[in-house]
Amino acid sequence: MSITQSRFMYCSRMASEGVINQVASIVKVAREFNASQGITGMLVFDGQNFCQYIEGPSEPLAGLVQRIRQDARHTDFHELLALEETQGRQFESWSMAYQIVESDNDLGGFFHRQGTAALEYLLSLVPELDRA
């Protein structure tokens, strides 16, 4: 019996200046939780905007998405890629890859993309992020 895999992607804005001091802790907790649940993905932060793509077993991923939606540490939540079943993974070896980018990379560009266009945009940034 195979486990159904799903994926989800969103962007949001930091709720307050105090959140910036919590980002490292958020990533640490996410990595531990995700590893325990078989969830993988990537979080990119530019000091104001977040963009996150997550994938993994459908049930734990759906619970995580619900908690993310309710997290008061971010606002202006935009679903870019709806929670949907998928085959394979984009970030199989990363429980939560994390990259801080300079503001000139403008993660705000994610707010204008939807569906696979948003995911393709994130994937196009990965080589650049690897050099950062």
Rank of each mutant, 00 (worst) to 15 (best):
59 E>Q: 15
76 D>G: 12
109 G>L: 02
61 L>M: 07
103 S>E: 14
63 G>T: 04
72 A>F: 07
67 R>M: 06
89 R>M: 07
103 S>H: 12
59 E>W: 09
89 R>W: 05
70 Q>L: 14
85 E>K: 11
63 G>S: 09
64 L>Q: 06
112 H>W: 05
102 E>F: 12
114 Q>A: 04
88 G>A: 11
96 M>P: 00
105 N>E: 04
98 Y>W: 12
65 V>Y: 01
78 H>S: 10
100 I>C: 05
103 S>P: 00
73 R>M: 11
93 S>N: 14
69 R>V: 14
97 A>H: 11
79 E>Y: 06
91 F>P: 01
72 A>W: 05
100 I>K: 06
109 G>A: 04
97 A>F: 03
114 Q>S: 07
116 T>G: 02
69 R>A: 10
104 D>R: 06
62 A>N: 10
80 L>F: 09
116 T>V: 15
94 W>R: 03
100 I>W: 03
111 F>R: 08
80 L>M: 11
111 F>I: 03
92 E>P: 00
112 H>P: 00
58 S>L: 14
66 Q>C: 05
114 Q>H: 03
77 F>R: 09
102 E>V: 11
80 L>N: 05
70 Q>T: 11
59 E>I: 15
63 G>F: 03
116 T>L: 14
101 V>F: 03
94 W>Q: 03
84 E>N: 12
66 Q>I: 05
93 S>A: 15
60 P>I: 04
60 P>F: 05
93 S>L: 14
110 F>Q: 04
90 Q>C: 10
65 V>E: 01
114 Q>E: 06
64 L>Y: 00
115 G>C: 08
113 R>K: 15
67 R>P: 00
73 R>V: 10
60 P>Y: 05
71 D>E: 09
98 Y>I: 01
79 E>C: 15
83 L>H: 03
56 G>A: 13
92 E>W: 07
108 G>M: 08
69 R>D: 05
85 E>N: 13
